[in-house]
Write a protein that binds this DNA or RNA. Structure first.
Lengths: 137, 137
DNA sequence: GCAAAATACTATATCTAAGTAGCATTTAAA
DNA sequence: TTTAAATGCTACTTAGATATAGTATTTTGC
């Protein structure tokens, strides 16, 4: 399992913001704190904004705030917003015809593992990640 | 979890060859059967050959045969040979500092899932995949 | 209204995996 | 020993993700 860089950055950004979920964050501040390049970070913030995870306010005194409670924002929501979860859901060996009804020889084995992966991402919220005090951002 | 296209092709090729593991396969024949582009398939075969999974014999009457018994060739060996497994083993959220000793907040949760992924790939051999009669190649 | 400080948009550059093309080399049958 | 049939090597092209640059737009304080 390897997420796209964009997803990893998005999770880092939101995880950082979740430390103080009520405040408004300017992109400039996040750039300083997280050492992500200006334009790339801004693009990710715009995406997260359009996808309904954060709200942007333009103009002087503008910035970004959470659109929902952080206990209602799950890793799967963030991945969906950035790269989409679909690619992780098909046959891991790439057999186009493989399905529950017409499984490849690895299917039965993989189904439970994939369910665990999906479960982890769907059940872990930003609140759960809010204990990252020991991790440098 | 999404393997590289190259890994997926490699698994398809070897899985197909495993149906009759003693015979020698010419690239030309595999191209016909598997509908993979000539040069790309040949490149993958050369890689698998260098990595010790199959043996190539050059010249007229040449082709590819398995270098080991198919029950001793595991999915993890194939992935290692093509793209490497390393990328799947680090912190899935991308925290550089994350480790067993200094875990991110998702680490404990993910460790067991990742172990299951690795287990599936390390324990499934080409023999286990040899029941793919119901899958079109 | 104007200037400062913020986000938004569009285009471009860079990197890596994926895929293609052409020529070189090897081997064995005739 | 020549030729056909196979693999091997190197270079090139393409596509998508990653990253950067420049300009436009929005909002607030004065």
């Amino acid at each position: 399992m390897k997420l796209s860089n964009t997803s990893e950055y998005a999770i880092r950004i939101l995880s950082f913001m979740a430390r103080n979920p009520e405040r408004k964050y300017a992109a400039k501040y996040l750039i300083e704190q997280l050492k992500i390049s200006d334009k790339y970070l801004r693009r990710i913030l715009t995406t997260l904004s359009k996808e309904g995870i954060i709200t942007s306010s333009q103009g002087r005194e503008g910035g970004y705030t959470f659109q929902k409670k952080i206990q209602d924002i799950f890793l799967s929501d963030i991945i969906d917003a950035t790269e989409g979860m679909e690619k992780y859901l098909g046959c891991v060996l790439g057999f186009k015809e493989c399905s529950d009804e017409n499984p490849c020889a690895f299917h039965r084995q993989w189904v439970t593992t994939r369910a665990k992966i999906v479960h982890d991402f769907q059940e872990t919220s930003l609140t759960d990640l809010n204990l990252n005090a020991n991790i440098k951002f």
